[in-house]
């Protein structure tokens, strides 16, 4: 297979684009897709400092690598979930990545904020692990950005992540989730930072290939709690569809963003207020994170 641009030996075939690229031209393609995402959704400027949420995995480290190489001002944010060896290894990968590139890495421990590491939270609340983990991460990303003075948080969500989330939302007609699905969520409150997903145009295979070709040492092992996760089942279905119909995932996501999402936008804006317990933004009197932390505290005492 030959590179579409130079005719050299291809390293990766992109069936949905009916193209293949050699390593240098694939890296160029990848960076162009990120630049297009940042530009199209006005994600951030060169004057802003971007807080990149990193997990030690391929997506977030690939994202951080691109932004550094493109000359953006960045800092990393690692949320220590306290998931045994997995967290120890993923933190070590993030620390090594940041040190090798002379970048700042902010580290926050979930246990300090919620009262227990993620495995204990699951036991204490009987809430699905990924649900408590996702809630904690969203809350702590926003809080860390505010505390450290960053206007925008970038996450490594890729095309497959976004298509799987959309699939799950449509499958259950989650009318509150559909309008929120976007590559860029603007700040709609002084205590809510902008959240962006610069990799949403790139597939999981592409972010993995980029990380490999850039020599990024990322954690290949999966979170032990992700086994059996619903989103992985949705990804598998979509991948089977993609196999017989290349471009299906792309068209599903991009068709939604361009044509359908406006129809799901709420007629009335959601009213945001500050949580009476922690002061972070919420739609109710007490935010979901404080309710979770309170539940953990009570169960730990019992």
């Amino acid at each position: 297979m030959k590179c579409r641009k130079c005719g050299g030996r291809a390293a990766l075939e992109l069936r949905r684009h009916n193209a293949a690229f050699c390593p240098p031209h694939f890296l160029e393609f990848f960076r162009k897709q990120v630049a297009e995402a940042v530009h199209k959704h006005r994600m951030f400027t060169r004057e802003e400092t971007v807080l990149v949420a990193v997990s030690g995995g391929k997506d977030s480290l690939a994202l951080w690598d691109v932004l550094i190489e493109e000359g953006y001002q960045t800092a990393g944010l690692y949320l220590d979930l306290g998931i045994f060896e997995y967290s120890l290894e993923s933190k070590a990968k993030c620390l090594a990545f940041a040190a090798a590139r002379g970048q700042k890495l902010v580290i926050e421990r979930v246990a300090d904020a919620v009262g227990a590491p993620i495995p204990e939270v699951q036991k204490a609340t009987r809430r699905p692990t990924c649900s408590a983990c996702g809630l904690s991460k969203r809350y702590l990303m926003n809080r860390a950005a505010l505390e450290h003075g960053y206007q925008v948080v970038a996450t490594g969500h890729n095309l497959d992540d976004e298509a799987a989330t959309l699939f799950g939302s449509v499958l259950h007609w989650q009318m509150d989730a559909l309008p929120r699905q976007s590559p860029a969520l603007a700040s709609t409150h002084p205590k809510l930072v902008r959240r962006v997903k610069p990799l949403y145009r790139l597939s999981e295979l592409e972010t993995a290939a980029f990380a490999f070709l850039r020599g990024i040492d990322y954690i290949v092992e999966e979170c032990p709690f992700s086994k059996g996760a619903t989103s992985l089942a949705h990804k598998e279905l979509l991948n089977r569809l993609e196999e017989s119909s290349p471009g299906a995932k792309h068209n599903f996501l991009f068709g939604f963003l361009e044509k359908a999402r406006p129809a799901f936008a709420r007629a009335e804006a959601v009213e945001l207020q500050e949580c009476s317990s922690c002061g972070q933004v919420t739609t109710g009197a007490v935010c979901a994170f404080c309710k979770l932390a309170d539940q953990v505290k009570r169960r730990m005492i019992e």
Binding site: L12, E13, D59, S226, A229, S231, A233, H234
Partner: peptide
């Protein structure tokens, strides 16, 4: 990295590395 049409065999040592990650939903 090898594309699908690459012929492999003999003394080759290949790593098949999964790219799917995530949880939640």
């Amino acid at each position: 990295l090898l594309t699908g049409d690459t012929v492999v065999g003999g003394d080759d040592i290949l790593e098949v590395r999964p790219v799917i990650s995530g949880g939640g939903g």
